[in-house]
Design a protein around this nucleic acid. Structure first.
Length: 254
RNA sequence: UCUAUUUUUAGUUC
C-alpha cells in the first residue's frame, strides 16, 4: 500500500494523472488503495477541472469498499463551489451526512469544513432555505456541529438577503450555543439593523454591546458600514463621531 | 491528500 501511494503520488506530481488513475483502478481488486491514494488522484482531477472524471473515481472508490473521508468531500465540495455547481455541492454534503465518515482525518472541524463551504456558497447566492436545511442538520449531528464560521456565514446570508429577522434569530442561536460573537458577527448584525432602518439601534450596538465583554473591535468594514448608513440617514453628527474614532484608531478613509 | 469556510461602501451627477 505504501508503494502504491508513492507511485500514484509521483505520477500525479509529474502530471501523469491518467496513468495514476489507471494504476489506482487496476489496484482495485487488491484493495491496496487507501482513501489517501484516491484523494490524491481525485484532487488532481479536480484541479484540472475534470469534474466528471473525479466524480467517477469517487464512485469507484465507494464501490470498491473504500470509504471517503472528510478530505475527499472537501476536495469535491471546494471544486464544486469553484465551478458554481452548487447543487452538486449540496448533494455531496448530504451524502456525507448519510455516510458519516469517521476517525482518521475526520476531526469535528475537518468534518465541518465542507458543510461551511456549501453554506457559504448558498448564502452568497441567496438560497437561504437550502442553507437553513444544511445548517439544521449540522446542528443536529454531533459529529459535525456548528462553529463561529457557520453562524457568521448564516448571518451574512440573511443580511444580504435583507432578512433581518432571521439574522437576529441566528445571532441569538450563536449566543445560545455558547459562542462569543466576533467582529464579523457584529458587522452582519449591524448590517441587519441598518437594512431594517434601525440605525439608532445599530449605533447603540456599535458603541455598546459590540465592545462589551466580547473583546472585539470595529474594523474597517464596521466603520464603512456605519459611516455610510449614517450619511444616508442624514445623521452627520454621528457619522463624524464614528469617523473620528476610526481615524483615531489609525484607519484611513477610503 | 484538500481548504473559495464568514463581513462593508452613502449622497451627488450622468
Amino acid at each position: 500500500a505504501v508503494t502504491l501511494n508513492t507511485v500514484v503520488n509521483g505520477l500525479c506530481k509529474a502530471g501523469q494523472v491518467d496513468a495514476a488513475e489507471a494504476v489506482v483502478r487496476d489496484s482495485a481488486p487488491t484493495r491496496q488503495a487507501t482513501v489517501f491514494t484516491y484523494n490524491v488522484v481525485i484532487d488532481k482531477l479536480a484541479k484540472l477541472g475534470r469534474w466528471d472524471a473525479g466524480q467517477q473515481l469517487f464512485r469507484e472508490m465507494i464501490r470498491h469498499g473504500c470509504k471517503p473521508d472528510a478530505v475527499t468531500f472537501t476536495i469535491l465540495v471546494s471544486e464544486a463551489c469553484k465551478q458554481r455547481r452548487i447543487q452538486d455541492a449540496v448533494s455531496l454534503v448530504q451524502e456525507m451526512k448519510k455516510t458519516k465518515p469517521c476517525s482518521s482525518s475526520s476531526s469535528s472541524s475537518a468534518a465541518r469544513l465542507p458543510f461551511n463551504m456549501v453554506l457559504n456558497a448558498l448564502a452568497k447566492s441567496g438560497k437561504m432555505e437550502a442553507a437553513e436545511e444544511i445548517y439544521g442538520s449540522m446542528e443536529a449531528e454531533d459529529w459535525i456541529g456548528c462553529d463561529l464560521v457557520t453562524y457568521n456565514t448564516m448571518l451574512d446570508g440573511y443580511f444580504r438577503a435583507g432578512r433581518a429577522g432571521d439574522g437576529y434569530r441566528v445571532f441569538a442561536e450563536l449566543l445560545l450555543s455558547g459562542f462569543v460573537p466576533d467582529t464579523l458577527s457584529f458587522n452582519a448584525l449591524l448590517g441587519c439593523l441598518c437594512c431594517e432602518g434601525k440605525l439608532d439601534q445599530a449605533v447603540a450596538t456599535f458603541w455598546g454591546r459590540m465592545r462589551e465583554r466580547t473583546g472585539c473591535w470595529p474594523d474597517a468594514v464596521t466603520y464603512t458600514l456605519l459611516v455610510c448608513q449614517c450619511c444616508k440617514q442624514r445623521e452627520i453628527e454621528q457619522a463624524l463621531r464614528i469617523a473620528a474614532e476610526m481615524i483615531d484608531r489609525g484607519f484611513v478613509p477610503a
